[in-house]
Design a protein around this nucleic acid. Structure first.
Lengths: 223, 223
DNA sequence: GCAAAAGTGTTTTCAATACACCCATGG
DNA sequence: CCATGGGTGTATTGAAAACACTTTTGC
């Protein structure tokens, strides 16, 4: 609302949508805003760019220092420059996606008690502050395209996984249904995944075989 | 882009790679720099962002006012933030591709005598100033991806064209060779182009049929 | 009639799709 | 033995790829 105390001409900020897979669902990490404007709303984590760092360095710093997460894979998505994005200043935002697998996340996460973070299912996003819902939607579009035209999901499935697990995530993100047999054929015959020889015991029903992504495969359309 | 007298903390600029098709070749429009630094080098057109405009508005203004070109189709590509991009200031650059067909270009272009512009074949780029060669390469990568996963080339072929012409451009940009029969089959059978019923007379050899892009086709992978 | 450039048809291969039954485990 | 979930095979369709000869024009 008011041009309160910030310096003028604060120009560039980063915003990051961090995605992980938890129990077969894609989640995004959002931050609860504790000050006006948009107090009580959820926002994408981010930070104003300093003059001595690149956007990518800034994002990595935000991830590590502010959120207490390990360094992760990031990709730049889009730069937003609408005049009224921020009620106080003219701020241009460059958005990123960040991907981290749940195992690394749990192992290397350091709790920060000055920020309230929460993981949201990408199909039920809460009320967001600023234009962050629009930005998150663009990040999701970008993520979906990357999932279709690459095997980027391997970053979220680094260790042994089952094909039904993987299929559920593809179906969840792309919002489609796939035939189990055809999915297996594609993944195995086209060489995207490799049978580890192990099985996933201790669950209901027949144990599933465990696979890992084939690192040798070139970047190309999967769906 | 800057000279030695600008204010500090000049933060954000736009850069645009404008592409057109001329005589079956893709060309990019570059500007000859007349002042230090990088005097005599070629650079991508662009301009510093004002606080009262979006990046997209800024690009459109550059295109119209500085270059004397008609408003054209643009897409944002990538934002570059290396610290040493510009020797004088810390400048972050958001890059765009611009596409315009040669007929509209010739009809609506207004000459500006304060800038020296030249079209370069994308396969023989001159020595460029700043980090613009790196940025142009990224723009070309982006453009190639868009050509593969959409029928964006239709913007450069708005009026009647022949399939051999179109094929040559695909081959030129993607640096591949295609079979004439298979190319025709794809374009016609999958509905990307429509036979206008006219033919291209007055050239050597058998006259070629004229086609136009099918506007009804949804965005999807072509190659 | 010949040079130049464009048009055309067939076969093979392989991924995409559709579809129904059997298998391994836990309780 | 039954409920749960995972694994498997076959037939069809359609695009991709490979490949050589004929047609239309200008000169």
């Amino acid at each position: 609302m008011s041009s309160t105390k910030k310096e003028k001409n604060q120009l560039l900020e980063t915003l990051i949508g961090i995605f992980t897979v938890d129990k077969g669902k894609i989640k995004v990490l959002l931050m609860h805003k504790k000050t006006e404007p948009y107090k009580g709303y959820w926002i994408l984590p981010g930070s104003v760019l300093n003059s001595d760092e690149t956007l990518e360095d800034n994002v990595t710093d935000v991830v590590c220092d502010k959120l207490g997460l390990p360094t992760m894979y990031i990709e730049q998505c889009y730069t937003f420059s609408n005049l009224n994005r921020d009620p106080d200043n003219r701020v241009v935002a460059t958005s990123f996606i960040g991907l981290i697998d749940n195992i690394t996340l749990v192992l290397k996460r350091q709790e920060k008690d000055d920020v309230e973070l929460s993981w949201f299912d990408i199909n039920s996003i809460p009320k967001m502050g600023y234009d962050h819902e629009k930005i998150l939607n663009k990040l999701l579009d970008y993520f979906r395209k990357r999932i279709i035209n690459s095997n980027i999901l391997k970053i979220l499935f680094p260790s042994d996984f089952t094909l039904p697990e993987l299929q559920k995530v593809y179906e969840d993100v792309l919002n489609i249904k796939m035939d189990r047999r055809n999915f297996r054929k594609k993944m195995i015959n086209l060489g995207y995944v490799i049978d580890t020889g192990d099985v996933n015991e201790g669950y209901m029903g027949r144990p599933a075989k465990l696979y890992r992504f084939n690192e040798e495969i070139e970047e190309r359309n999967i769906f």
